[in-house]
Design a protein around this nucleic acid. Sequence first.
DNA 1: TGCTGCTCAGTTTTT
DNA 2: CTGAGCAGCA
Length: 687
Amino acid sequence: MKFPLNPAQQEAVEHQNGPMLVLAGAGSGKTRVITQRIARMLERGVPASAICSLTFTNKAAAEMAERVAVILKEGGHRGQSVKQMSISTFHSFGLSVLSRERKVTGGTFTIFDQGDCLGAIKELLSRVGVDRRFDATEVMTRISNAKNAFIAPEELREREGDDYDEITKIVYPRYQAALRNFHAYDFDDLVCEVARIWKTREDVLSRWQKQFRYVMVDEYQDTNRAQLELLRLLAGEHRNICVVGDDDQSIYAWRGADVRNILEFEEHFPGAKIVKLEQNYRSCAPVLAVANAVIEKRTDAKYKKTLFTSKLGGEKVRLGQAPSPEAEAAYVGREIRRMISDEGRKPKDFAILYRSNGQAKLFEEVLREQGVAYRVVGGTQFFERKEVKDVLAYLKLSLNRSDEISLRRIANYPPRGIGETSLERLGTYALARGWTLWETIERVDALDDIPSVARDGCRALEKTIAHARKRLLIERAKGSVVARELCEQLGLQKEITATSPSPQAAARRWANVDGLFGLLSRRESREDAAGRDASAERELMTFLHSLTLNSQEEEEDPGNVVTLSTLHGSKGLEFDVVFLVGLEEGLLPHSRTLDPRASETAPQDIEEERRLFYVGVTRARQLLVMLRARARMVRGKPAPRTPCRFLSDIPSDLVEEFEVKDAALMSTDEMASNAGNLLAMLDALGK
DNA sequence: TGCTGCTCAGTTTTT
DNA sequence: CTGAGCAGCA
């Protein structure tokens, strides 16, 4: 990694003022360029506090901060520190703007995660009383799409025949009003609302423009319309904006990313300097040749890039066809085993990449059989665990009693007599008198028609929350401490034990709650170290916000294990050996993108699948093995499969084709090796 | 209120 | 074929 910068990289690093677009091909050292560029600016006397660097994931932000810190440690940067710099995700950047503009936004607020938003939408849907049953998730997606496209509720166009457009038109404004009423923002708001405030309040915008005189954006091809709006406003005056991205790796159009942002950068920021990074430092020539062949055939090129490398060697790319997915998986397992024992490779050198999560299962089974350690990346294992969300809801409610979603979540959990009917009645009162739901609970004694059990429940809840609130805000107790006290007071452990199907399940769920305590304490000590001094309320709000925003949970060092990941999840990672599996029509261009069910945008969607394939190919450093099965069970029925269409864009001399033998026809050699593995496993178990 | 059985759908995912 | 979500029943 200590190579000197190549001329293109140098050019990007030295540039300082005015707009610049860096088209960074896969593996072309883009993170290095960004970090070096920051260092260079600091050397030239730009104050760290004037730099704002935006990414999409917490991981990317942390990595960038880390790498800048390393450079700064090497000295020569006038004692500037990363801490003064704003290196963050779009969302946490938006959050910090909204937090600091509380005069404009009106006080403290909560952030609703997806579950909270879905709850709100379900509630609204039932209140609207539509005759047909609508899928709340679909409505949520539509609203999110509108926000990503920077379309306000009143701007949604009337036309378009889809029933969901119709219902979205009705629900979106109400949803937005409900959020404001709850003093809540959803994830999309963290970007949109900042742009909206900046757009309407020039005085506010001007302050932020003066603060951040240099703006940088990573993975620019993933930005949506709202993010573009935000950037145009922030950089509108000084135009010191540097964006880095790769249109060939644009794979998130389906969640609002708009490739036009990168393709039309010159129009958005006239006079922009454009730099292409085409030298690849990751992959060997045979892998790169395949990557280039795949991306060359794309139908919508504007900036053409051709990657090259000076790396020598590397094995020819392999393309195998297996009789079945089981045989495919068995082959991958065998090969990994073989390369570990014969070639001295380590588990962490391998990745198995697939289009959809369901495909992981077979590979997990095989690796387990082979006794090879692995991890599965992603797979929506968020911290959506009910018991954790319940405890957090108590904390959130203690700080923000307008947070109706949290209130509804725990109103009768653990059961305290506030049944569905009572809650509904309370809701009706709230609506009629213009109180919040919480105020209604506080004033339950003044209401009729509430059963006395529910009345008692409301009083108990009121007492619990009031106490927690006092502990947090007046006595300034730590969140982790209050969380423990709450659980104690609520008898949550008992409740969990009583409602779990088995003692093991109960133990697991309680362990999650306990894990939350640990997570809270760890965060607290980190915050303490940062030594910020604010009011207890603000401090705790910030704290809860960071919990919602960093839901990923600090990932531990993956260790020496094989990586299983979706193609989407693999972006930004690299491995010596990559197995690209399930390269079949219907799986790689996924059937859902092929089907005419989605009426619009067919050719574009397929191009996105091509780029997905390209992303997979470019993950490999030394060896790429592509695989497909000739038949596969589809919805319980066996079906013949055709090879992925993108494979036919690869000249046959670039790949070595082979047949994967059926497990039943394995040679005695392989059987012996498998038996050996089995013995080794038994041996390991014995110890 | 909680469980059981039935129906239906079946990508990708961060914040 | 599987899993999730819901309706209907106890």
